[in-house]
């Protein structure tokens, strides 16, 4: 992995010294200041982590315990009732078809991610390398599309889905998400950064356009493909507004729309925070797992997002 993906970026980074411990420019702080600094920084770090810790702990509390000791880090009477309800293991699982949400979210995220990666790499390659009439214009449109705020498209999208009879169908949930303009842009930028010589050599050897793209260019594009895959999965897993306007039946509820309905008052009988927080935690887990495994691709994605605007 290391070898292939860094072949290109190495050229750029090699100029820098390789040492891991760079000597600081200014001298260190004196010890007392350092102690204060570390304490302050640790507090800030806690501020970012505590909500998740509280969320995790509360999921194992009973309702009264969660209400009376919201900050308690150890449940008074630990229980897995919330998780049992979510997974349908106890009788009280009414109104929370969690497994259905999970299934919908998973299927949609997988299909959307796969098609986003394929279509973004195809379009990005064409925009970067192939000469065809209207390319410059198309790229101009792409830049314009990236500026269209998704929120302003909410009702318009409903209108189109409704007109085509796609409202409240899986097709209507999935197809509009299958291309993301920003990801096309990321792929285009990447393809422009890799040297042409390899492709040219493949062409000379007689490979056609598709063959060159599929067997020569795509393998070289692995880092960008991973970045786009992760971005696409994260955004389709967390997608909320599109599902909100493209469906109304509960059978199409995903983790986000289901959880939002449950939280904003669709659930009778008390606040049931352990249940809600457990569901929210499970909805966070897949992206969290990806994040801790592939953090640097998330970082690249964040910085690519900065360049795009």
């Amino acid at each position: 992995m290391k070898l292939s993906e860094n072949r290109i970026s190495e050229n750029r980074t090699r100029a820098k010294p390789r040492s891991t411990r760079v000597r600081p420019v200014l001298r260190r702080f004196p010890v007392p200041l350092r102690v204060i600094g570390y304490t302050a920084v640790a507090m800030v770090g806690l501020l970012y982590l505590m909500p998740f810790v509280i969320q995790l702990v509360t999921g194992f509390k009973t309702d009264p315990d969660a209400a009376s000791h919201p900050l308690g880090l150890i449940p008074v009477t630990p229980t897995t009732a919330a998780y049992q309800r979510l997974f349908g293991l106890s009788q009280a699982g009414d109104g929370v078809p969690f497994l259905r949400w999970l299934g919908n979210s998973t299927v949609i995220a997988v299909v959307v991610t796969a098609s986003r990666v394929l279509f973004a790499s195809m379009a990005g390659y064409a925009l970067a390398r192939l000469r065809f009439p209207g390319r410059t214009l198309l790229f101009g449109f792409l830049l314009a599309f990236m500026a269209v705020p998704p929120v302003a498209l909410l009702i318009p999208k409903f209108l189109v889905l409704n007109t085509f009879g796609l409202f409240d169908t899986y097709t209507g949930m999935i197809v509009p998400l299958m291309v993301d303009a920003a990801q096309v842009f990321i792929m285009k930028q990447f393809f422009e950064s890799i040297p042409r010589e390899v492709e040219e050599a493949a062409r000379v050897d007689g490979a056609g356009v598709f063959r060159t793209y599929w067997s020569v260019v795509l393998p070289m594009a692995r880092p960008a493909l991973i970045t786009v895959t992760i971005l696409a999965f994260q955004s389709s897993w967390n997608e909320f507004t599109h599902f909100l306007v493209s469906t109304q039946s509960s059978q199409y509820e995903t983790l986000t729309t289901g959880l939002a309905r449950m939280v904003s008052g669709g659930l009778g009988g008390g606040t049931q925070y352990p249940l809600k927080l457990a569901a929210a935690l499970l909805a966070t887990l897949p992206v969290a797992a990806l994040f801790f495994c592939f953090q640097r691709y998330f970082v690249q994605g964040a910085n690519a997002g900065a360049v795009k605007e």
Binding site: Y48, L49, P51, F52, I54, Q55, T58, A66, P70, Q234, W237, N238, F240, L255, T256, L259, A260, V263, Y273, K276, L277, A279, A280, L281, A283, T284, V287, A288, F291, Q295, F298, V299, A302
Partner: peptide, 17 residues
């Protein structure tokens, strides 16, 4: 960085609590 990658619905739920 972690809060940025999580679902807005999920973290809103946590903040409600």
């Amino acid at each position: 960085f972690f809060p940025s990658v999580t679902s807005s619905i999920a973290v809103s739920t946590v903040f409600l609590f």
